[in-house]
């Protein structure tokens, strides 16, 4: 009798411990919009920088994948590429406890995946394996900077605005406030009045105001972001590219940062990558 009780106890303990004992954790990084060359792995890694990836993965001890997709395309085109890469990573590594970290438009791309999990088997795999999603400065309600690009759009759009906002691309249209209003109304979940997302989203927002967003005078991007913040007409705090209200439109606020849009995908001005590694 005692032996049987012991066996039952061992069985219960094993069952209770099964989840944590055998869950394999991994992390996926999903970049924002940009050029078509972002579909190259090396360009995507440069987007995040090695110190950022190292910090997020606790010096590469957590299995990771840096997604790389054409940064000029609509969210569903990007979503197909991202879902395919994450699903391959999950299947190859046996990941059952995935955290997804996104920057900027990457947060919209991942929200597309979680709003349309039946699109293909890769989408299902990603949603199944995910613990939660962290979005850094995602333009969930659009970006006034992208609106500005639309106002100035066409062949005239050039110079620094090309680097910062992108050219007259589908992803720039995707990020405009009017287009995101349409997508939020019909296609995406998670905003007010729409169904909840199937997994938790945590948001991180840049909250500097006005022109005080020169985080690092060595980066020309900081000047461009300051110019954008000055003329884009952001309603309230922003990181030079995405307003606080938009970054916090989906999910639960994790933390806010004074790092601008250029630096909040890096681990330099503020240790954003170190904060993200708190998940592991």
């Amino acid at each position: 009798m005692r032996r049987r009780v012991g066996i039952v106890l061992v069985t219960v303990v094993c069952l209770l411990g099964a989840t944590n004992l055998w869950a394999k954790t991994g992390v996926a990084l999903v970049h924002g919009k940009g050029g078509a060359d972002l579909q190259n792995a090396s360009t995507a890694l440069a987007y995040w920088t090695s110190p950022m990836v190292s910090a997020v993965t606790k010096n590469y001890t957590v299995p990771y994948v840096v997604c790389h997709y054409d940064g000029t395309q609509y969210m569903w085109v990007a979503g197909d590429q991202v879902a395919s890469q994450i699903a391959s990573f999950v299947n190859a590594q046996g990941i059952t406890d995935l955290v997804i970290d996104t920057h900027s438009f990457g947060g919209v791309v991942v929200r597309w995946i979680f709003s349309n999990p039946n699109r293909n088997a890769d989408y299902q795999t990603v949603v199944n394996a995910t613990r939660w999603v962290n979005t850094i400065a995602a333009p969930q309600d659009g970006s006034e900077a992208a609106d500005l690009a639309g106002t100035l759009s066409g062949s005239w759009l050039t110079g620094w605005l090309v680097d910062l906002v992108g050219e007259n691309t589908n992803s720039t249209y995707n990020c405009r406030t009017d287009w995101m209003a349409y997508y939020n109304q019909y296609w995406l979940f998670g905003t007010a009045g729409r169904p909840a997302l199937p997994k938790s989203f945590y948001c991180i927002a840049g909250v500097d105001t006005g022109l005080a967003i020169f985080n690092d005078w060595a980066h020309v991007e900081d000047y461009g972001l300051a110019a954008l913040a000055g003329v884009s007409g952001f309603p309230g705090a922003n990181d030079g590219m995405v307003a606080q209200y938009s970054a916090e439109a989906v999910g639960t606020l994790w933390f806010e940062t004074d790092a601008n849009h250029h630096h909040n995908r890096r681990n330099d001005f503020r240790p954003i990558g170190t904060y993200l590694s708190y998940d592991f």
Binding site: A18, T19, N118, A196
Partner: peptide, 23 residues
């Protein structure tokens, strides 16, 4: 069978065809 059990414990896709919006 623990690895197999852990796969089941990792969660499943939320049924999206009948999503309630608690908002």
């Amino acid at each position: 069978f623990l690895p197999v059990l852990s796969l089941f414990a990792a969660g499943s896709v939320t049924q999206m065809s009948q999503g309630f919006a608690p908002l």
